[in-house]
Design a protein around this nucleic acid. Structure first.
Lengths: 186, 186
DNA sequence: GTCTATAATTTGATAGAC
DNA sequence: GTCTATCAAATTATAGAC
């Protein structure tokens, strides 16, 4: 009774998970069928059975990631929760991404590469950011600068992630997240 | 009478320039000696004459990019120019990067990939961000929150670049840069 | 400096047996 | 579903002629 029509086999899901980690570590080009096969304990040709083309695998990974993040953020309901609490949820997600996974966001990686990606993958990355911005804009809905502020906040979270992993200073995420909350409080 | 000891031949510089563009478009893995050779009108084996190993080529590209950006930003001199003017210079650089080049920053791309890069290249990316943060921290030197604010500003510029190119909305850079100036004015 | 030729490896993808 | 076998193409890099 799931609302999305995609249902994958257990092995297909293993492959999607392995691909997500590898993309987030080194980018789309750095992922190979051979490595994914080793990750899930089968041969490269068998990975092609589940995902015939790499571009379609990439798009599937992104859509799965989008669904998961948006589900974690939850529906926007300002009658039950404050703007601050919604923002806190978003920041928590991204602080956890860096401090727990020691990786950047999938959208951040594919967004950076988007000029060189197969169309199906760059389109999926664009969809990801649109959904994320839509969520945040509706959280900030009553403000005149909602759209720009949403870009500012998402941009800051994405860019700070890059700084945090490159400089190996995960605590930067926390510090900047605190500043973002003050930004909205004004 | 240049102060850095690296002096490259004219062809080597052509290669560095071609490599910078290709890395910024698709990442380090997406660049091949064959493509670079075609860019500068020689064969792949001849590129190896100028840069024997790809990792060293990558590091050279980054250091060159660092030197150029830091030179454009100029020395920090708060007796001659205001904090706001210094920040304006930084924002102008990054707005131009997106609107003119239609590419993201080299440091942003390599920072995203840094987990999977040859050591020489990821170390160069780290150096780049350290130099950039140092510059901005000394601009903000008199503020108690200089370090965190510098991370916030650089992070925002980097992340917004990703959003702008992915969503094909270059004007986002301008809008967010305006907000950053207000941030410092407070 | 640039070339041809080549080595050794890896890549995405397909055909067909089981 | 997974396998072996195979393919054509691309990869980084080296050797040696000019």
């Amino acid at each position: 009774m799931k609302d999305d029509s995609t249902d994958y086999s257990a092995k297909a899901i293993e492959i999607l998970e392995a691909a997500e980690i590898r993309i987030r570590r080194g980018g789309f080009e750095a992922v190979s069928y051979r490595d994914l096969a080793a990750d899930v304990g089968i041969k490269a040709a068998s990975v092609h059975y589940h995902f015939p083309q790499k571009a379609l695998l990439g798009a599937a990974v992104v859509d799965r990631y989008s669904d998961r993040l948006l589900a974690t953020l939850g529906r926007v309901d300002l009658t039950q929760t404050t703007v601050e609490a919604h923002l806190q949820r978003l920041c928590s997600c991204y602080v956890a991404v860096v401090q727990h996974d020691e990786m950047i966001c999938l959208g951040c990686m594919l967004g950076a590469e988007s000029k060189d990606l197969p169309d199906a993958v760059s389109a999926a990355a664009r969809r990801f950011f649109k959904r994320l911005l839509d969520w945040l804009e509706s959280v900030l809905g009553d403000r005149a600068d909602a759209a720009t502020l949403a870009v500012h906040i998402i941009g800051t979270l994405q860019g700070t992630m890059i700084l945090a992993v490159t400089l190996k200073r995960p605590e930067l995420m926390d510090e900047v997240a605190e500043r973002l909350k003050q930004l909205v409080a004004v």
